[in-house]
């Protein structure tokens, strides 16, 4: 057999064999065998120098043709292998796309990050403190000495007589003030809190709270209203208004409940029980005793503080009617939000 004939034989053998190739791996073996650096085609080409010039020209042409044909066969086969075996050549564009794999943040985290984004935009710094707290920080330094009747406002889980699971993020107020005094301060304190509380649709024994604290000269209840209004409008919509109502917390004086206009914008609906307002937070001016416990002089420096539940924010935004969904971690719940 002349060299050109050998080359044609290699070509036809290769083209015949490629039809039986059923996997990408087999195709690679096929490629190495015929088209590889030490493959059959390369072997034949290596003999070019040993033949007459006429035969060499013919063999050269045959080799080029064979190489092109085999490469084309290779890419065609590769493409074919990559299309599902079930499919014919016609592409059914109504088949579903290939869904990318997507994860998601927990709804609480997502909401918390949104809250943090808004407050950091107003110059607040995130400050995290411990979840297991001393009785002194959780209560005592917040103007709630032992035997204070208002301690009943927090059903508490105790680790020992002096150690509790924090019932609110407020102990972080003292920790932040003690760390940064006498500088002016704007912090938000996010984190888990715990209550000894029977669980139902609107009460959880564990929840996330975000506390805001601003301390410095010239901080007033009007500043709290301004900051909270800016928050509410970014969080719930630019048409929201903020209302203060009188209230009582031992660590603020004056104390207020903070309401925002409901999703119904005041018309009254089931969510707001017809009042047009939603209670989202409680706060006020930091009590002089607490300011002093933080290391500032309450006659010169004033501060506001507020606290709110992250889950409640999420429930209002997304129309969730049962807080127990949050920490069941059921993906049928979590996937709806992220």
């Amino acid at each position: 057999m002349s060299l050109p004939e050998q080359i044609l034989a290699i070509q036809s053998a290769a083209l015949e064999q490629v039809t039986t190739v059923g996997s990408v791996r087999d195709l690679e073996d096929w490629r190495v065998r015929y088209l590889g650096r030490k493959g059959e085609l390369a072997g034949a080409i290596s003999q070019l120098g040993a033949v007459s010039s006429d035969e060499r020209r013919a063999a050269g042409q045959a080799a080029n043709g064979a190489k092109a044909a085999l490469q084309e066969a290779h890419s065609a086969k590769l493409a074919e292998l990559k299309v599902s075996a079930k499919q014919d050549n016609a592409l059914d564009v109504t088949l579903p796309g290939i869904a990318p794999v997507v994860g998601g943040l927990h709804l609480t985290r997502h909401t918390l990050y949104e809250i943090i984004r808004i407050f950091t935009g107003m110059g607040f710094t995130v400050f995290e403190t411990n979840e297991v707290e001393s009785d002194e920080y959780n209560f005592g330094l917040l103007n709630l000495p032992p035997d204070h009747p208002a301690r009943d406002m927090w059903d508490t889980m105790y680790v020992s007589d002096d150690v509790v699971l924090r019932t609110h993020t407020s102990p972080g107020q003292i920790r932040a003030m003690r760390q940064f005094n006498p500088e002016p301060l704007r912090v938000i304190l996010p984190g888990k809190c715990h209550r000894y509380e029977a669980v139902d649709a609107s009460h959880e024994s564990m929840f996330y709270q975000v506390e805001g604290l601003a301390v410095g000269e010239g901080i007033t209840l009007a500043s709290l209203k301004g900051v909270f209004e800016a928050f509410a409008q970014q969080m719930f919509g630019s048409d929201r208004k903020v209302r203060f109502r009188g209230s009582y917390f031992p660590f603020t004086e004056p104390s207020v409940e903070i309401d925002i206009t409901c999703n119904c914008l005041g018309a009254g609906c089931a969510v707001c029980k017809g009042t047009g307002w939603l209670e989202v937070s409680g706060g006020g001016m930091v009590h002089p005793t607490v300011v002093r416990n933080g290391g500032y002089d309450p006659d010169i420096v004033s501060g506001f503080a507020f606290g709110m539940g992250v889950e409640r924010n999420a429930m209002l935004r997304h129309g969730i009617d049962d807080i127990r969904h949050f920490y069941a971690n059921d993906l049928r719940f979590l996937k709806q939000f992220a």
Binding site: R186, T220, S223, G226
Partner: peptide, 9 residues
Amino acid sequence: ATLPSGALP
């Protein structure tokens, strides 16, 4: 509703 005044922390 006013935003806090005074030195920016």
